[in-house]
Design a binder for these strands. Structure first.
Lengths: 217, 217
DNA sequence: TGTACATCAGTGAACGCGCGTTCACTGATGTAC
DNA sequence: TGTACATCAGTGAACGCGCGTTCACTGATGTAC
């Protein structure tokens, strides 16, 4: 079934998309090439018309997943539709996100395995993480945080670390009550970090804040 | 070489010990039974005199690693030798710990994979995490934090989440500067959370605090 | 104390399976005339 | 516009390899006499 370039690109993207989801669910080694191709409606052999090795797909899938999450969360939508930092934290540390790793954040699902991946995959991951920090800083400013970039960056990094660790632990833990407690406690703590002092004293903390300033990279 | 029960137990422990290290370094699927046995000075076949399946070893190794870390960090040593909460944070988020996952905390190295493990492994992991929280709460009190257990527990959970996420991200990231920044920024932020307000205003913050009270489970 | 025997931790070859990868082939499409 | 040909995405069987697990065997030790 020889096809046009456009058709090939579409197939390629479909494979990457499916792999990205399955990897987040089952781990980078948890799904076979054959299974992925089957889910894409194809057979094994064709895989190598699109990727030199399985590892190449891993790298692409990691990058795709991060890009998709960022796009969904912030980049592609208008300022009014962007989530506040509080909404972002609550969304990230939610039962829905915990239980749907395939649709969720790559970082939370795959950090451990990415640390053991080849350089290219780690490099792509690093770029995605940097973009995420920029996004978080932007949202911190939009929530009314003043102060220099260095300070906000420190806060953004802490928030990022805590969200990654909390969703990882919440998924690993056996006990549903503890799992929810980890998410709830961490989210509460992070929101006090993320919102400027005067905001935490007013009612409606955690609700939508009007953006005061915007930061572009 | 038929041996006594004591000798068998010793061999068993050696296998678990080695597995626990290697799993933290290479992931739960990253080392073969044959390699582990070889490192223990044995051959493959003997493995099944000690474990019914490889998965049984995984569960034991996870539990062993957590127990060892807890013991090393706190449980087995006298109050005077226990690290302060600030020392604990700095030690966890250090280059040394980042670069020696085999000697370090199981949680940070394996959360992602444990989430996909069988129930028994997750249950053992959960117990270890609960013990860690108790330890953290104890250290928070020893640092002079007042307040009810619920509040301290929330803080302990946040610290735990952030440390897990930060060390995971620091290991995954490609860029050495960013890696250290993640650890440093998170540690700094956590220490302001972990130390009571008056302590953060005095010089010597982050140094050893005299324990005021102790908490037993 | 000395001897014969049963036990069972450890051996190492072999088995079966799943997986990543290869390869000769197919047939629809784009292109040249 | 219609026809012949070259391209190449996709097929699916086959290959090789590594891994978890099994199994008949060994031989040092603990035990019964």
């Amino acid at each position: 079934m020889g096809r046009s370039q456009a058709a090939k690109a579409e197939t390629h993207d479909r494979i990457v998309q499916i792999a990205s989801e399955r990897f987040r669910e089952a781990g980078l080694e948890g799904v076979s090439v054959a299974d992925l191709m089957k889910e894409a409606g194809l057979t094994v052999g064709g895989f190598y018309k699109h990727f030199a090795t399985r590892e190449d797909l891993v790298a692409e899938a990691v990058a795709h997943g991060q890009g998709a999450w960022l796009a969904r969360t912030a980049n592609a939508i208008s300022e009014e539709e962007k989530p506040t930092i509080a909404e972002l934290i609550d969304g990230y540390l939610s039962v829905a996100h915990r239980d749907a790793p395939g649709q969720g954040c790559v970082v939370g699902a795959l950090v451990g395995e990415i640390a053991r991946s080849r350089p290219q995959t780690r490099a792509l991951f690093t770029e995605g993480l940097k973009d995420t920090l920029v996004l978080l800083i932007d949202r911190l400013r939009a929530a009314g945080n003043e102060g220099d970039n260095a300070m906000l960056r420190r806060t953004a990094i802490s928030i990022c670390s805590a969200m990654i660790g909390a969703i990882g632990a919440a998924r690993a833990v056996d006990d549903p009550a503890l799992s929810e407690e980890i998410m709830r406690s961490t989210a509460a703590q992070l929101k006090t970090l993320a919102l400027p002092l005067e905001a935490t004293r007013r009612p409606g903390v955690g609700g939508r804040q009007s953006p005061r300033s915007q930061v572009s990279k």
